[in-house]
């Protein structure tokens, strides 16, 4: 099989060296076994070790290698290299400060995640064995607990771009609903109070970019809708 060459337009910025970011034209020859964008990036890095990006599991469960690929957020390890239009334009996730090349500062993203108290609250005395939960009750958590915190969703959301300090964003709100939906959690009132605010929840305008980009096919917009429903039903 003939070797394939992939051309990139790559966002580059090293604050130690560059005055400002620039787009670099680079290309790399792939081996037959290279299937994903991440394979190509690893091969590029073997040529130019200064190219900087995060990566770990290379199978879409750790959430490290989120980036903006031809204008759309996604995971490099789950993106088929052969299906991408060339030159492949790679940029860091939008809306967060860039540290270097494709590496962004995720402080604000995690701050919002932490702000929803992402842990089960149950102050009843713990039984000796597991708390019971029916299969149907457990099913309510499907589509919520699988989030990998890659930030593809929040950094594709215009509301998060404008107000990253005030709007929780789709990832954080998906997590908020994950605990609201859990029959074992006892903090429903506090959780809703925590989101009762013009920005934290209600800046979501159902643009649905989050749904479009989620590499795990989750639906934060639907979860946000359910939180809004809970707000309404407790108001009446």
């Amino acid at each position: 099989m003939s070797k394939r060459t992939v051309h990139f337009k790559m966002y580059r910025y090293d604050p130690d060296r560059d005055e400002k970011p620039y787009m670099q034209d680079i290309s790399v020859e792939l081996e037959e076994s290279d299937k994903k964008l991440l394979d190509a990036l690893v091969r590029l890095k073997a040529k130019d070790d200064s190219l900087s990006f995060r990566r770990s599991c290379r199978e879409g469960v750790c959430g490290s290698d989120a980036m903006n690929i031809n204008g759309k957020n996604g995971l490099a390890c789950l993106t088929d290299i052969d299906k991408l239009a060339q030159p492949v334009v790679l940029r860091p996730l939008p809306g967060l400060p860039v540290i270097r090349d494709l590496i962004v500062d995720m402080t604000q993203f995690f701050k919002q995640y932490h702000s929803i108290k992402p842990y089960l609250v149950n102050n009843s005395p713990a039984p000796e064995r597991e708390r019971l939960q029916s299969p149907e009750e457990r099913e309510e958590l499907n589509g919520l607990y699988e989030c990998i915190l890659c930030a593809c969703c929040s950094t594709s959301c215009p509301s998060f771009w404008w107000n990253p300090d005030k709007f929780v964003g789709p990832a954080g709100l998906l997590a908020a609903y994950r605990f609201l939906a859990d029959t074992r959690d006892e903090a429903t009132t506090e959780r809703l109070d925590n989101l009762e605010d013009p920005y934290r929840l209600f800046r979501c305008h159902s643009i649905m970019n989050c749904v479009d980009v989620c590499p795990k096919s989750l639906n934060p917009t639907r979860a946000i809708g359910k939180i809004k429903d809970m707000m309404v039903s407790r108001a009446v």
């Binding site: 064995r129 597991e130 299969p135």
Partner: peptide, 19 residues
């Protein structure tokens, strides 16, 4: 394992609600 369940780990369930 029971501790983890108490921490909130979303184990799948049997029909009678156990892990």
């Amino acid at each position: 394992v029971v501790e983890l369940e108490h921490y909130g780990m979303p184990f799948d369930r049997t029909d009678n609600g156990k892990i």
